[in-house]
Write a protein that binds this DNA or RNA. Structure first.
Lengths: 145, 145
DNA sequence: CGTCGAGTTAAAGCTAACTCGAAGTGATGG
DNA sequence: CCATCACTTCGAGTTAGCTTTAACTCGACG
């Protein structure tokens, strides 16, 4: 029987429009059609789509994903080049993770600052902080906003 | 003295064009100008730009970064909303890390498969694998390309 | 004084990845 | 028989984030 484009769209949190767009761009050449001309996705098609989403969500451009699909259709001659693509892309993903970790540090530092200063601000009138602390916070506020 | 736009561009691996674009979009309202009208970046400006790059590289749209900058200029009334922005964005970044980890698993699985099958393919003629193994690999190849 | 390099603006152009709309087809339920 | 609904194609439009171009201005160097 297979899945309709609508069902697949829901499963993958895409729109039917987007899936048709992927098809038009050559990412789904393996998807069969019903007599009426409607796309019928098999379970293996869903596996392909899952991989396509994985590559797309890790920043691979649609054109390169298309190359990969073409290589797959070409057969065993392209096995090595495909393997190499995954090796390279894996490196890319690791780099993304490193960058993300670095940026998370920056955000955490910022957040620590905001947590401190917001607490002071809310209780500003009630709690006596002492003049030195107040001055200190003013300076901090100017330096690290 | 301060840095020129070219120096800053090099430091941050951006182009001068891009920095001017950020300025035009309201991300750099604090940058001073020389008598000649050229931008002069101070060390504190570089800190701002570093944060801007951090937010941009973790997927925050330029418009939202602009909001943040505006809130900063407005003063202490916006401290809490700014803190909340960082709390929310931190969650976003953690989600990105999770997704990246999941996708890395998919890629690693794929790579394991390609490593195996490429090894077999290269030594295909030399090494006797036995008929059973060959059949098995054929099937695997069809299922998990 | 000329010219070179680095800066300036404003506006147009580009690419990727959708996103939408119009106009039509085919199966199903009342 | 007709409406509804999910699908179809094709082509145009949108958005974000640059990127390029044209025409210009400084300040320093020979």
């Amino acid at each position: 029987m297979g899945y309709t484009i609508g069902q697949v769209a829901e499963k993958f949190d895409l729109t039917a429009h987007t899936i048709r767009y992927y098809d038009k761009e050559g990412l789904l050449p393996f998807v069969d059609r019903s007599k009426a001309g409607n796309r019928e996705f098999s379970d293996s098609d869903l596996d392909w789509l899952k991989l396509i989403c994985c590559l797309k969500n890790t920043g691979m451009p649609i054109k390169q994903i298309k190359h990969y699909i073409e290589w797959c259709l070409q057969g065993d001659d392209t096995l090595e080049i495909r393997r190499q693509m995954f090796v390279d892309h894996r490196k890319e993903v690791l780099k993304q993770m490193d960058n993300l970790k670095e940026n998370l540090k920056t955000i955490d530092f910022k957040l620590e600052f905001y947590d401190t200063i917001c607490k002071v601000h809310v209780n500003g009138e009630k709690l006596s902080m002492g003049k030195q602390n107040d001055d200190c916070l003013k300076i901090i506020r100017q330096i690290v906003i």
